[in-house]
Nucleic acid binder design. Structure first.
Lengths: 153, 153
DNA sequence: TATTGTTATACTCTATAACTATA
DNA sequence: TATAGTTATAGAGTATAACAATA
């Protein structure tokens, strides 16, 4: 009972925290690619090949938008499309070695910029962040089935 | 020495964790407003009035882009522009009561969707996230002076 | 007939460059 | 002359609707 109440409160607090992370992430991120494209590439790097439709649902964009996004990534040589042997309709998308390099370079730039902010935090905050990293990974890796984001609201 | 090494590693890990949060945030967020607009409104809600140029730097967009963004927020009644008594060139931007309501509603929707994911995490991950919230708030509230994001890279 | 993905079109949002106004 | 902000224009990126292909 109390557990449920605590979790509800926590969800609201986490939601409030997530909100302003967008500003921080944009500030940390090098230009030249949209946040959506970068996030998609990171998903491909960490979770292996994806079907185009699943990837669109995962990233919270429409199927046509993902078609275009993948086309841009492919033109840049960062990802590639592969046919599915079992189902002729399906398009598999996977990252290329150049894509991995790109993700890695981008991550380094972010890390450098972030480093300056982190060192100004009190040690206990730094420790709390480090301790929460596995949880953040688990949260971003969790399946997001069922309720897709509503188109309008 | 070792401390420095540990911090560098931590920054890279945090940077990798941040990357995929964009997917999660987009998936959690109701449509109808860009992530940038929502993040800007959240900044105004939590940090009070901002000068237009400072706000643009803060959110990682150009000054003309922020002019347009604020115009859209003002047209929607969510923010308002005020003159600065001390300097006739300056435009102050602040959130309206309707803007606060909007932020709150949006936060609730995110919290509901997030709740389903959180309850599927192991208790220790939930606890770690809750413990890291003050650190996340500190990180997103920290000043981001000096090195603005590069235009191209 | 249902599902997977693409194409067509219009709209939102952003950046660069050129400009106005105040200091 | 420098700074704060706006306007003009072009381009990137996205959604909706209509379509083609495979199951």
């Amino acid at each position: 009972m109390e557990v449920t109440a605590e979790k509800t409160i926590e969800a609201a607090d986490v939601a409030a925290g997530l909100e302003r992370l967008v500003s921080l992430i944009r500030w940390l991120s090098p230009g030249g690619m949209s946040l959506t494209s970068a996030a998609t590439l990171a998903t491909l790097e960490q979770s292996g090949p994806w079907r185009l439709t699943s990837l669109a649902a995962r990233e919270g964009v429409t199927q046509p938008a993902m078609t275009q996004l993948v086309r841009r990534l492919a033109e840049a040589g960062l990802a590639e499309r592969c046919a599915d042997a079992a189902d002729g309709r399906v398009v598999q998308v996977q990252i290329t070695p150049a894509g991995r390099d790109f993700v890695e370079r981008r991550r380094q730039v972010r890390a450098e910029r972030l480093s300056g902010l982190l060192t100004r935090l009190p040690p206990e905050d730094q420790a709390a962040l480090a301790a929460a990293l596995p949880a953040i990974r688990a949260l971003t890796s969790a399946e997001r089935d069922g309720s897709a984001p509503l188109p309008q609201a």
